[in-house]
Design a protein around this nucleic acid. Structure first.
Lengths: 161, 161
DNA sequence: CGACTCGGTTGCTTGATGCAACCTTGTGTG
DNA sequence: CACACAAGGTTGCATCAAGCAACCGAGTCG
């Protein structure tokens, strides 16, 4: 997506999409949620062009969705973490994932399962635990490889390629 | 957003964004949910370029998110309606709107309130009625101008500019 | 007969994206 | 010491999508 400003729109969806509606942005957020924190890791996992990734990360930090923290000095190297604002995107991502699972399903089932950390129940499209009924937030849930994920993809993920 | 294909991604979020992640697409879906059904109406409301709107509508119809129905013949004129697949995007839109409201609020409050048709209760970011607790779908809810919408915007909306 | 409406399409310009090469700071190897 | 390699970018260039204005075709209105 282009750097999207939607002039004249009063709508909050438009405002949200101005930030997270650019191409790659939501996928970057998802990847950070899944534990990818470093530039190279994100680049390899997403296959996005490096300059574009660089621009998106900068914008996400500016918008206070990601935080950039050094994990070593000399040479300085950085990791990206989600802020509270970034973590708050979780329900939207869960809803999108559920929509994708429902309407263009993998033959063997969903590639990624989201489960409630505490009770192990599956999480619904509304971000609510199907087992215990609790209304969850990003930190309450964990993603597991689902039945639809292929062997090679798993291996690739294990090597965090 | 560009016509986004995210090669090599197994993720359902990526699959969802391939379709609805293009620039303008989600805003078009939102607009149709709000009752804008015709080409000119959508174009005026969104301010999107006509060729882009045309391309998006075509793609949305191909993807079975919208349905194109004639409402008169000679000359043939068409309206766009959401399919079930399109209506299923509602939870994602609600989540995005809630995120926008929370993290870049209008000074006077949200521009658009979503309420449960039956009981009039406000709808949470999870698409659940705050009053009666029911888990809602697109057809169960209605959007009302909220406190944050300015007088002129209301007038403009009334004239469906 | 000319102006207007609706729902587009066409052509041109601008700007974002994809790709490969390069840079900088530092470590490991022979 | 020279060389290769790693991480995290930046730069330059080609391509493709978006924005804009003009046009089109079928039909209605005055």
């Amino acid at each position: 997506m282009l750097r999207a400003d939607y002039p004249g729109q009063v709508c909050s969806i438009a405002k949200a999409l101005e930030v997270v509606g650019e191409r790659w942005t939501l996928l970057i957020v998802r990847d950070v949620m899944l534990g990818h924190r470093r530039f190279g890791e994100l680049q390899g996992s997403l296959g996005v062009a490096r300059n574009v990734l660089s621009a998106r990360l900068q914008r996400l930090v500016e918008e206070d969705i990601l935080e950039r923290r050094p994990y070593q000095s000399s040479p300085e190297r950085y990791e990206y973490f989600l802020t509270e604002k970034g973590l708050d995107l979780w329900p939207a991502l869960v809803a999108l994932q559920a929509w994708g699972d429902r309407h263009s399903p993998e033959p063997d089932g969903p590639p990624l399962l989201i489960v409630h950390k505490e009770c192990g129940g599956e999480v619904s499209d509304r971000g609510i635990c199907e087992r215990c009924g609790e209304r969850l937030h990003a930190r309450d849930a964990r993603a597991l490889p689902g039945p639809g994920v292929s062997g090679e993809a798993l291996t690739a993920a294990a090597h965090s390629r």
